[in-house]
Every structure is written in structure tokens, then in C-alpha cells.
Amino acid sequence: MAARNLSQLKLGEKGIIAGFHDSNLALKLLEMGCLPGTEIQLTAIAPLGDPICLQVGGYTLSLRLDEAAVVELQ
């Protein structure tokens, strides 16, 4: 199966973060607790389909779809 990224999760679905392919954004996301190996769940989608809200490490994080696409899932 081809590697998926965070923007492809369905509502309520969980994934495990594998890595990033944008080093500047990666630093920001790491700081926010999105570490490789962490479980992340899509909890809400904004009415126009973008941005999305994710549950990670005990809090809710909001990302745009193109930012979420940087995060690879296992």
C-alpha cells in the first residue's frame, strides 16, 4: 500500500505519524507535539473542508490540508 499522509484521514480515523517532508514545517509540528510514532486522530473538518482539527498528544491541533499533507503516516 502506498504511504498515506495526514490529509487523507477520514473523519474519526486514527493514524501513526511516520515522518515529514518539509523541514521548516516539521520543526513547527514537532514543537507542537507531532512526533514520529505518535497517534493522531481526525476529529473535525471545517465546513468548507479545510482546515481540519486533529487530536494529538492530549490536545486539539488545527492544520490546513496542505500542511497536513506534509505529515506522512505509517
Partner: peptide, 8 residues
């Protein structure tokens, strides 16, 4: 690049 990344 404009960022949105935000804690809710």
C-alpha cells in the same frame, strides 16, 4: 509560505 498550524 503562510502557516495556519494552531492549537485549539
Amino acid at each position: 509560505r503562510s502557516f495556519f498550524v494552531m492549537e485549539m
